[in-house]
């Protein structure tokens, strides 16, 4: 059996305590919430923290508030994916997010994994998500223990893939992330939380804790999330398409399209969103938007499926997502219960 390396486990009861414990541990410390990302990585020796600071005892991280009337929805980062996608208000008014959360892995994992954990999910690559012995056989890679990125050996950077389902939705919805550090608290637009780099994929400082995600009031807009993977469950996305549109008098007044699984971060494709603004999502507009999203998508050969096919599917999935939004506008509802 693959086993965990030894570590010291700390269970703070408050944020303040957690921040202090982590600061005390220094670079050898790591936060752990649901553990569904960190623990497999530790078993494969991707991360080898000596001190684990658990966030699961901090009550404040487990709440969902607001989201009624014209108020924003606030989701604690420690809310499990199951709690998120079964939360009535979230399902009713933030269907795209509920859908993304419900599509993460399997029901077993969603009972453990948290929203915050999924947003902070380590980037993935099938040269990297392997055991130590396996990685030794390829002389390791840049992301851990080695120097080369085998996905693009001449590249100076790591191309591991953002594989979160909820991250592209958070970006498309224009969510805000609350980060609490030992000294500071800051609020960051979702898009600025992520970095286009397989190794430094978050702008979050290691000591900071993602505590809360604030979603804008649910009025006048609609959104959806489409996920591509080999199997109906368990698998990470090889492509995620999150689309957000604001309707105004039957026309798209504003739009955001974010792609997951095609880069080291959830990638906004403003050139595609721009195409649909001012349209009724006519077929031509959808086709053009899909083409515009297709062009900058750059899947690499490091996930399931061939990269050419995955790139091609960007067109299909953007089309499908936009058509879904168009159909829903036609039906007179703007929010969808997933």
């Amino acid at each position: 059996m693959l086993r965990l390396p030894p570590f010291t486990y700390l269970q703070p009861k408050s944020l303040r305590q957690a921040l202090r414990m982590k600061a005390d541990a220094g670079p050898d410390g790591a936060y752990i919430a649901g553990g569904t990302d960190l623990l497999p990585n530790m078993k494969r020796r991707h991360q080898e923290p000596k001190v684990l600071v658990s966030l699961s005892g901090i009550r404040a991280l487990g709440r969902i508030t607001g989201g009624t009337g014209g108020s924003a929805l606030s989701v604690g980062a420690g809310v499990t994916l199951t709690a998120l996608h079964t939360h009535r208000r979230t399902r009713k008014r933030y269907g795209a997010l509920a859908r993304a959360a419900e599509l993460v892995s399997s029901p077993l994992l969603r009972n453990m994994g948290t929203f915050g954990g999924n947003l902070c999910l380590d980037t993935r690559c099938n040269y990297y998500n392997q055991t130590y012995e396996w990685r030794k056989a390829i002389d390791f890679c840049m992301k851990k223990d080695g120097v080369i990125c085998w996905v693009a050996p001449s590249s100076p950077r790591c191309w591991a893939v953002s594989s979160s389902d909820t991250a592209p939705v958070a970006v498309a919805l224009g969510a805000e992330f609350v980060l609490v550090g030992p000294e500071t608290e800051r609020v960051l637009p979702a898009a600025e939380f992520f970095n286009d780099d397989g190794i430094r994929y978050l702008t979050k400082h290691p000591d900071e804790i993602l505590t809360e995600v604030r979603l804008p009031p649910a009025n006048g807009w609609d959104a959806t999330y489409w996920k591509l993977r080999r199997r109906g469950t368990i698998d990470f996305p090889v492509l995620g398409v999150a689309v957000w549109v604001r309707w105004d008098n039957g026309l798209v007044a504003d739009a955001r399209i974010a792609l997951g699984g095609v880069a080291s971060y959830p990638k906004l494709v403003p050139e595609a969103a721009a195409v649909v603004v001012g349209t009724e999502l006519e077929d031509d507009a959808i086709r053009e938007a899909a083409a515009a999203a297709y062009r900058p998508a750059k899947p690499m050969d490091n996930t399931d499926f061939g990269l050419a096919w995955r790139k091609e599917m960007v067109r299909n999935y953007v089309t499908g997502a936009l058509e879904e939004l168009k159909a829903r506008r036609g039906s007179g509802t703007t929010k969808r219960d997933v």
Partner: peptide, 8 residues
Amino acid sequence: LDYKSPTT
């Protein structure tokens, strides 16, 4: 995870 065995 990566060797794909059909699920339910």
